[in-house]
């Protein structure tokens, strides 16, 4: 699957980590692990930031996460005005790294930095072409 299928609007059709989008379509959230030094990265990288190795493997993430910060976008850029206002969260992933995505099923009043959340892989049903993304949802 080309990487352009990741996101409501795509700016990046080609990347060495395009398999990320295939995995997400199958319901798996993956990061990268360096085959040389073992460094784990999310967002995934083809090339290791620690040791410069270009060799990596995919590592599955649990999706468990903790809300680090958030905002509610009212003034939206091109391609997002139809869904504004929307809540964006940044979460810490216990396996390593952070992730940014839409918060779903959570009212503004319920948001608390530090709250447990989960990353849920999703596809846009209302768009004819394949478009995958993820949301941040409540976790008990």
């Amino acid at each position: 699957m080309p990487f352009k299928w990741f996101g409501k609007v795509s700016f990046v059709p080609y990347t060495k980590v395009s398999q990320f989008a295939d995995e997400l379509k199958e319901g798996r959230l993956v990061g990268s692990r360096c085959l040389s030094c073992g460094h784990v990265s999310f967002p995934p990288r083809a090339d290791c930031i620690e040791c410069l190795s270009p060799d990596f493997e995919w590592v599955e993430y649990s999706g468990k996460c903790i809300l680090h910060t958030f905002t509610i976008i009212h003034a939206a850029p091109t391609g997002f005005d139809d869904i504004a206002p929307y809540i964006i969260g940044i979460v810490d992933l216990p396996e390593g790294g952070r992730l940014l995505g839409w918060m779903r099923g959570i009212e503004k009043e319920e948001i608390e930095i530090g709250m447990p959340l989960k990353v849920v892989p999703r596809m846009f049903e209302e768009i004819p072409e394949i478009k995958v993304y993820y949301t941040l949802e409540k976790r008990e």
Binding site: G7, K8, F11
Partner: peptide
């Protein structure tokens, strides 16, 4: 690649 696709 990882952020603007969510309308940041």
């Amino acid at each position: 690649q990882w952020e603007s696709i969510f309308g940041t």
